[in-house]
Simulated scan of single mutants.
Amino acid sequence: MAINLQKGQKISLTKDNAGLSKIMVGLGWDPVEQGGKGLFGGLFKGGTPNIDCDASVFVLDSSDKIRNKSDIIYFGNLTHKSGSIRHMGDNLTGDGDGDDEQIMVDLLKVPKDVAKLVFVVNIYDCVKRKQHFGMIKNAFIRIINLSNNQELVRYNLSDDYSNKTALFVGELYRHNEEWKFGATGEGDTATSISEMLTRYR
């Protein structure tokens, strides 16, 4: 049974799951239904805004720094050079149930000089489209053990993210030879991946 985390909580993934290696990190969200087209004009589809959220992973060293472009895993760079992290591709709308985007991680293959994986979501072209995370509901991140398809952890983001255009969702990090997960759930006003990266330069 999955452990449901609250914002700020942390849990060890490997302590109670001996041999855990291959995991899937799923992120999901749904657009909030709106009445009519409003000021978004043609961006609405069936009364719901067509919001293109992009999930990405920042691969950090022990100083919480990103070293080069290849350590940014996103729709334009789907696989880490080590082969340990693989993004399964971009979902353009957020329609449908379940995960909207999935990222595969092989914990045993993550290079030893990598200390943390930061999972983030931003809204593509948010300024031009006048969109923010107050227009999103049911956002979550979950971790699946791929050896048995068991959901280990789920974190439902329940804060009000109105006027926030970026989310720092959660972190996978090493601690005393264990892999832990922290539920971050922090909203930000960054309007692109590049702006989100400034805190890790």
Rank of each mutant, 00 (worst) to 15 (best):
S192C: 09
G26F: 02
N77A: 09
D95M: 10
E101G: 01
N122C: 02
N77Y: 03
K7R: 11
G94W: 13
D52I: 03
D159V: 08
N149P: 00
G42C: 11
P49A: 02
N176S: 13
T14I: 06
A183M: 09
M135W: 00
D113S: 12
E101C: 02
G83V: 15
E178Q: 14
K128P: 06
G182S: 11
F40S: 09
A115S: 15
M135E: 06
N149H: 04
D99V: 13
K10R: 12
R129T: 07
E151M: 14
V118G: 00
S62K: 15
L172S: 08
A190P: 09
G76R: 06
S192Y: 01
F75I: 15
R199Q: 14
D64M: 13
L78Y: 00
I66F: 07
D160N: 15
K10C: 10
V105S: 07
Y173S: 15
L172P: 02
N163H: 12
K81A: 09
S162C: 06
S194C: 02
N122L: 00
V127W: 05
D159T: 07
E177T: 04
V105W: 07
I11P: 01
G41V: 02
F40W: 09
D61H: 13
D30Y: 05
S158D: 10
P49M: 05
N91I: 03
T189P: 00
V118Q: 13
Q6C: 05
N148Y: 10
I144E: 00
L13Y: 02
V114N: 07
G19D: 10
A18V: 15
I85G: 03
C53Q: 12
A139R: 02
F75D: 03
L92V: 05
F133L: 04
A139H: 06
D106G: 05
G134C: 06
D160H: 10
D61K: 15
G76C: 06
A55G: 01
P111C: 14
D106T: 13
H175K: 15
D106R: 11
E101Q: 04
I141Y: 00
L60S: 06
V153E: 11
T191R: 12
V32A: 04
G89N: 00
G35V: 07
N138L: 00
D52N: 15
D97S: 11
N149K: 15
G8K: 11
D64V: 08
G36M: 04
A2H: 01
M196H: 04
G38I: 02
V32S: 12
Q131A: 08
F140I: 04
N50V: 11
Y124W: 13
N50S: 14
I73S: 00
D100Q: 14
G19M: 05
F168E: 09
T93E: 05
G96F: 11
F181W: 11
N149I: 00
G182T: 09
I66A: 01
I66W: 05
G26L: 04
R201G: 06
T79E: 03
L78N: 04
T93K: 05
N122D: 12
P111R: 08
E195C: 04
M1S: 12
K15N: 03
K69E: 08
Y161V: 08
Y173N: 13
W29Y: 05
N4Q: 15
S162I: 07
D71G: 08
F181P: 06
F75V: 10
V127I: 14
V118I: 04
K164M: 13
V118K: 15
V105Q: 10
N77E: 05
S194W: 03
K112I: 14
G185D: 04
V153W: 02
L146M: 11
N145I: 08
